[in-house]
Design a protein around this nucleic acid. Structure first.
Lengths: 247, 247
DNA sequence: CCGCTGTTTTGACACAAATCAAAATGGCGG
DNA sequence: CCGCCATTTTGATTTGTGTCAAAACAGCGG
C-alpha cells in the first residue's frame, strides 16, 4: 500500500479544450466556440501523471481543480489513525478537487491508478470566468451538485445495502460511466484492487472477492483478475433492491 | 413513519437578511451592508413549517434553495424499494436543496423535525446575483464544497467505523454545531428518533439505543429519552479512532 | 387524569461479514 | 526466463450487529 511515490512533473501538453474530444462531458460543456477559446486561455497547464502519483494530497492548499483528460484515479479520505476510505473513483471527463473549496485545503488524496493526464483549472480563473459566462457558471454548479448527489447515493449504499447489492451497484455504475464515455458497458478492466473496491464499498477485500466469485458462479459476470465482463446486466439490476435486508 | 403530512403554507415573514442574526453563518456571510440589501430583495419568501411538513420532496422540480432560519430537519434519500436513508440533519444557518441543481429535480425529501422557518432562495436569482457579487459567489461555492466535504466524512463513518465510533462522531458533530450557533455544546435535545439516528449512521435503532445505554453506563453521557448531556467529551473523542476495528 | 399510541429499552438468538490462515495466481524486475 | 512480491482466492472460525420479541416508558388528546 505505502510504496514510494514519484514526484509529479508538470508539463504543457499541446491539447486545448477547443480541440479536446471530451469537451461535451467536461467542464466546458455547452460553451460556444468563442467561449471555448477563453477556456483554452484559462487552462494552460496540463499534467501527465503516472500510476502511483498524487494529483493532490490531503492537507495541501487548494491551487486548482483538475479535469481528467485520460486515465483513472481514486480519491481517499484519511482518518487520523491511518484508516483510509476510498471516496470515489474518477475517470476522463470528471472534475476533482471540489472538496477543497470550502476550507482552501484538500481533504482527500487523489491517487493515480492508471497513467493519466489532467488539466489544471485555477479556481480563481474559474470564478472570474464563470461571472462572465453564465452557462459556465451553471455548468460548474451542476457539476458540484452532481458530486453531492453521487455522495448521497454512496451513503445509501453504505448505510443500507448488503454486500451483494453493493457490488452490483458498483459494477452497474462503472458500466454506465464507461458507456457514457463511448466504451463497452459490458466489458472492462478494473483499474483498482479488491482492497480499494472494498474500501469504497465498506467491505473487506475477502468479501469483495467472494462476492465476485459468487456472481461468476451464478453466471452474472465473468471475472478474470482485473478483467470483467457483465453477462446478465438485468439480473444484476434486479439484485439491487431485493433481499428483505437491513431496511 | 408515514403519517399524513400538512400542506405547507407560504407566508411572508417580516425578517430580512440585513436584520437576521444568522447572516454571518448563512449564505450572505461577509457581504457589505449594501450587498445585504440586495439579498433582501432576492429573498422575498419565507416559509413557516410545522413538524412533519416537507420543505421539498424527491422528484419535485427545483425552484429554490432553502436557508434554515430556525428549526431542525432531516433530508432522506429514497430507494425504489422503499428503503430510506437519512442523508443529513440540518439546523439554522444551513442551506439545503443543493443536490437538485445537477438534474433540476430534488433527489431527497427534506422533512421538518421541529417547527421551522426557511428562506426561499430562487436559484436563478442566486446565480444572477453571484455574478455581480464575487464574495457571494465564493461563499456559495464554499457552502457547496463544505457539503461535499461533509459527505466524505459520512462516507468514512459508514464505510469504516464500528457502532460506538459512529455514535460518538454523531454526538460530537451535533455538539460542535450547536456550539457554533451559540448553544450549549454539552447539553441538547435530540430532535430525531433513534430510528432516524440509526438510518443516518447505518445502524438499527436497537443498536443505537444499546450503544447510548452503554455510553451512559460508562459515564460518558447522560441520556433521558431525547435529552442528552455529554459528561466526558474528551473520552468520546478518544473513542473515535480507537479499537483496531475494521481497518 | 387516564388510556392510547408510538418510541425506547432490554434480552435471546441468528446471521452476514470480518478475521485469521494458507494456498494459488499473476505480473514485474533482474 | 526465473523468482519474488503483491494480489487474489478459498476455507474455517469468530463476532458485531441485525432480527425478533416483549416489556417499560413518554407524550398527547380526550
Amino acid at each position: 500500500m505505502a510504496t514510494p511515490l514519484r514526484i509529479v512533473e508538470v508539463d504543457k501538453l499541446k491539447t486545448a479544450c477547443s480541440t479536446c474530444s471530451l469537451h461535451e462531458l467536461c467542464l466546458p460543456a455547452g460553451l460556444t466556440p468563442s467561449e471555448l477559446k477563453s477556456m483554452d486561455r484559462m487552462i494552460d497547464i496540463r499534467r501527465s501523471l503516472k500510476r502511483g502519483d498524487y494529483v493532490f494530497r490531503a492537507g495541501a492548499p487548494l491551487h486548482a481543480l483538475y479535469a481528467i483528460r485520460t486515465g483513472f484515479m481514486k480519491s481517499c479520505v484519511l482518518h487520523e489513525d491511518g484508516r483510509e476510505q476510498v471516496a470515489g473513483f474518477h475517470m476522463m471527463g470528471d472534475l476533482i478537487g471540489m472538496d477543497a473549496i470550502g476550507t482552501g485545503q484538500h481533504l482527500c488524496d487523489a491517487v493515480v491508478l492508471e497513467d493519466s493526464e489532467v488539466c489544471e483549472i485555477p479556481l480563481k480563473s474559474l470564478e472570474l470566468m464563470s461571472r462572465e459566462i453564465p452557462s459556465l457558471q451553471q455548468h460548474f454548479h451542476r457539476i458540484m451538485s452532481r458530486e453531492i448527489a453521487r455522495d448521497y447515493g454512496v451513503m445509501l449504499l453504505l448505510g443500507s445495502m448488503r454486500a451483494e447489492e453493493r457490488l452490483a451497484v458498483f459494477l452497474l455504475n462503472l458500466s454506465q460511466r464507461f458507456a457514457a464515455r463511448g466504451y463497452s458497458s459490458t466489458e472492462f478492466h478494473l483499474r483498482m484492487t479488491r482492497e480499494e473496491i472494498g474500501s469504497y464499498l465498506g467491505l473487506k477485500l475477502e468479501t469483495v472477492s467472494r462476492t465476485l466469485s459468487q456472481f461468476q458462479s451464478q453466471g452474472l459476470i465473468a471475472v478474470q483478475n482485473k478483467h470483467l465482463r457483465i453477462l446478465k446486466i438485468d439480473s444484476l439490476r434486479e439484485l439491487v433492491g431485493q433481499h428483505g435486508c437491513r431496511v
